[in-house]
Design a protein around this nucleic acid. Structure first.
Length: 452
RNA sequence: GGCGACGUGGCGGAGUGGCUACGCAGCGGCCUGCAAAGCCGUCUACACCGGUUCGAUUCCGGUCGUCGCCUCCA
């Protein structure tokens, strides 16, 4: 079991992963708000934290990964209203599509995927505790968190209250704020006339604010002071800062021991996202390039760095994936040669060093080169299978499908033509085979048929 | 204005105080009827200006540029 070194946003340093309970790691990663189908950017944290969990499991930890689904939110009300639908119905549909879209990545599911709408009871208790302790107050049906009551507020995002642009825009005399302080944020929002999803609470009908749900859901599954809290870097402030503040105020302890944040996917070039609805949706990218290429694309850069989205980047990922698939065809099932043990170790060392997937991939490439050069025998594939498994790319080693009889028949006829040195006929048959979606390759003593 | 991150070869993208990252593309070669796939070789960079150092792409300072957050966006 390697000791993983992970970058922690709170301290700004690489920190050794020292689990609260030795041998067990709890991870909570913020999932999407389901008001539309998710885009490729939403897929990054899903992939990063799913694979991090796989890696830690590989190292022998017992991992519990929790990824929430925010299904109560202003954007959901807005989107539903625009479509003339009930917000609950839209949220349900988008939740199902989110599950389907991420299923298609082929990485399995997190251990728990709580819904905000199914956590209302614990959220209300949480808010009540904050009120009782003097950290929150009611105001005309809303409940706000008293930011200045948390003396550590700002430590995660490295901000000082004095320096904060209060973010409220110009005060509107017609709608005076109900907050005591512009810094305060909503724990509960009183029901508005055009909102069709709400719950009863001691302070009136309404629904939870954004941040409180995560504190409540994380605590339900992982308790206070769990190991890793993750999400996109755009969530550091205010979302995670607020979660941390709530938990300190209500529980007297830190929510998480270590905070990890992934960089943003940048939409540049021709796919420039002018408005929010115009970005590359995950299901479209998956349909065009396949799950392996999408996963490869997402791990081709370090998780903390920004990653540019482009057609060229996805195509390169496809090329990388097909190189690995080709290499797999030249291996045999079984133990890999012992002289490659060092490379196998370096692969996992790279992942243990702040989950450096690009470096791990470099080592994997070196493994392939060493395994498939020189030697005339076909080396065992156990190392590659193990490495790809942790990256969620084990399907690259799957058996290639058997070509249908009619294609095999064409291939046999081509063999005969070649034997008779009738190359014009052979080339025609190759074109015919290609038309049927298969590629024929001449190999020692025969041919090989591969799906194109 | 505040906080934070980043500028690496044609492209993508790691990393390090001195030793080939890696992949894609290109080029040369091997193999092949021709291909495809593969293998071998090759192109070898660290924005700019100072400083520290025997030595800096790597540390420090500055300049220029890019990006994220500071409005419930992963």
């Amino acid at each position: 079991m390697r000791e993983a070194l992970l970058h922690d946003t709170l301290s700004g340093k690489l920190m050794p992963l020292r689990p609260r309970d030795p041998g067990r790691v709890g991870i909570y990663a913020c999932g999407p708000t389901v008001y539309s189908r998710i885009h490729i950017g939403n897929a990054r944290p899903f992939v990063v934290f799913s694979l991090l969990a796989r890696f830690l499991e590989h190292e022998g930890y017992e991992v519990s990964l929790v990824v929430n689904i925010t299904d109560v939110n202003d954007k959901i009300y807005d989107a539903a209203r625009a479509q003339g639908r009930a917000s609950g119905e839209l949220a349900l549909e988008m939740t199902e599509l989110y599950l389907a879209d991420t299923d298609a990545l082929g990485l399995g599911r997190p251990d728990h995927e709580p819904l905000a709408s199914q956590t209302i009871g614990p959220i209300i208790e949480y808010i009540q505790t904050l009120i009782d302790r003097g950290h929150a107050y009611t105001a005309e049906g809303d409940v706000y968190f008293r930011v200045r009551s948390d003396e550590r507020y700002g430590i995660l995002s490295h901000r000082q209250l004095e320096n904060m642009d209060q973010g409220e825009g110009a005060p509107d005399p017609a709608h005076p704020s109900r907050k005591e302080d512009p810094l305060d944020f909503a724990l509960w929002k009183g029901r508005k006339a055009d909102e069709d999803t709400w719950w009863d609470a001691p302070w009136g009908e309404g629904r939870p604010g954004w941040h409180i749900e995560c504190s409540a859901m994380a605590e339900q599954f992982l308790g206070v002071g769990f190991d890793i809290h993750g999400g996109g870097s755009d969530l550091v402030f205010p979302h995670h800062e607020n979660e941390a503040a709530q938990t300190r105020a209500a529980r007297g302890g830190e929510l998480a021991r270590l905070w990890m944040h992934n960089g943003m996917i940048q939409f540049t070039g021709e796919k420039m996202a002018k408005s929010v609805g115009n970005v590359a949706s995950l299901h479209e990218v998956l349909a065009e390039h396949g799950a392996e290429a999408v996963v490869m694309y997402l791990i081709s850069g370090h998780y903390r760095q920004p990653l540019a989205f482009s057609q060229a980047a996805l195509e390169q990922a496809r090329a990388n994936v097909s190189r690995i698939r080709e290499a797999g065809r030249r291996l045999s099932p079984g133990e890999s040669p012992g002289e490659l043990d060092g490379l196998r170790a370096r692969f996992f060392d790279a992942l243990a060093h702040d989950f450096n997937t690009p470096e791990a991939l470099a080592v994997l490439n070196e493994w392939i080169r060493r395994a498939t050069s020189s030697s005339t025998v076909s080396p065992g594939d156990s190392h590659l299978r193990e490495m790809l498994g942790v990256l969620g790319l084990q399907t690259l080693l799957a058996e290639t499908a058997q070509a249908p009889a009619e294609v095999r028949d064409l291939a046999e006829r081509r063999e005969q033509a070649r034997g008779a040195r009738d190359f014009a006929a052979a080339d025609e048959l190759r074109a015919e085979i290609a038309q049927k979606g298969w590629e024929i390759r001449d190999v020692a003593g025969g041919f090989e048929l591969l799906p194109r």
